[in-house]
């Protein structure tokens, strides 16, 4: 991956970091509300942002990904804008927010994944703004028992810390921790029990991310426990442990399994292709007569293959095996063998 540094990726990554820095300075009112204790988090976050943008750029520059992106944009901004944009929004809801397709892979995994995904997303929604100094609280004058929320330094809502909103605010991270703990336990028990998973999983790719998530959630929950029930006993050690688990998460984010969170967005592009197959012009197999995909996608795939140096085309023609339906391609191999063996069991028979 790092054989050759991807220049655009570096630039975009640096740009992202710069933008974030500006936002932090502005959002925290020139670092007035920035909490110095959170500096390790900030450094790791900056690394994660750079890494993720870099990798996303590299990934987007791969011909297949690039063409999918361009095709998606073209399909959205076509004369069917409303239909296709609607499709993308629907796909976003169903696939990204609800992750329905995972439920169809396995209901157990859906519950597991849903808890993990939303546990993480909600957790970030709370912690990042706090780390960046974008959110802070104070007691509004005259309402000493109330809290006021500031966003980007602007005063926002006032709420009762012992009321529902306050409870929800201060326990959001605990809720996230519990969701993640349940999710990781489900995932672990599956990975330890399921014979298929046992033989194919790797530590770095499948178990490590679960361990990191579990570490973040449990150490975070311990912090709460220490505050509320142990009178802050061992709080410093616990908070250091928690900090390191989060740093590990952030460092792992761009290069490990978690990167699929960003890649998943391309599923909306896939939805557009599928829609095109249902509504658009079909590619018909000249052998079986079957419309096996959309003309648009077949052309895209053929051009990706060309771009990558594959030369499937029959000489002087545009015709290639990719113009046949998958079924016809399977028949092609069978037929070729049959003809070469002259229909016999093996070669030496008359």
């Amino acid at each position: 991956m790092f054989m050759k540094l991807h220049k655009e990726g570096v630039l975009r990554g640096l740009g992202g970091v710069a933008l974030l820095s500006v936002l932090i300075v502005v959002g925290s009112r020139k670092l007035v509300y920035f909490d110095a204790a959170l500096i390790p988090y900030l450094i790791a976050t900056i690394f994660a942002i750079f890494g993720s943008i870099y990798r996303y750029s590299v990934w987007l520059s791969r011909p297949p990904t690039n063409i999918l992106w361009k095709r998606s944009l073209k399909l959205i901004f076509s004369k069917y804008f409303f239909a296709n944009a609607g499709l993308v929004i629907k796909a976003f809801f169903e696939n990204m927010l609800l992750q329905k397709f995972i439920g169809r892979r396995s209901p157990y995994r859906w519950i597991m994944h849903f808890l993990l995904a939303w546990g993480c997303v909600l957790g970030f929604a709370v912690t990042f703004p706090l780390v960046f100094g974008w959110l802070h609280f104070s007691n509004p004058p005259g309402h000493e028992h109330m809290y006021q929320l500031y966003i980007f330094g602007f005063p926002a809502m006032i709420f009762d810390p012992y009321g529902f909103i306050g409870y929800a605010f201060f326990n959001m991270l605990n809720l996230c921790s519990i969701m993640i703990i349940i999710g990781t336990v489900m995932a672990f028990s599956r990975r330890l029990m399921h014979p298929g998973d046992i033989t194919t999983q790797s530590f770095a790719h499948d178990l490590l991310p679960l361990l990191i998530l579990f570490g973040v959630a449990v150490s975070g929950l311990f912090l709460t426990f220490s505050t509320h029930y142990l009178g802050g006993h061992q709080y410093r050690i616990l908070s250091t442990i928690h900090c390191w688990t989060v740093v590990a998460f952030l460092v792992y984010l761009p290069f490990g399994k978690f990167f699929h969170i960003f890649q998943r967005a391309s599923q909306m592009g896939a939805e557009l292709y599928i829609h095109e197959k249902q509504e658009g012009q079909l590619a018909i197999c000249p052998k079986t007569g079957e419309g096996f995909t959309s003309q648009v996608q077949k052309d895209d795939v053929k051009s990706i293959l060309r771009e990558l140096g594959f030369e499937f085309e029959v000489a002087h023609e545009k015709f290639s095996v990719q113009d046949l339906s998958p079924q016809a391609r399977r028949q092609l191999l069978m037929t070729t063998q049959h003809k070469r063996l002259k229909g016999k069991f093996d070669i030496v028979r008359e």
Partner: peptide
């Protein structure tokens, strides 16, 4: 599993007609 988006590109490219794409599971 975490990456596949069920787009069918592989099915269209494979010269031997191998991949099976399951639409509902996007896989």
């Amino acid at each position: 599993k975490p990456r596949c988006i069920g787009c069918s590109n592989c099915q269209i490219a494979c010269p031997f007609g191998v991949p099976k794409v399951y639409r509902a599971r996007a896989q």
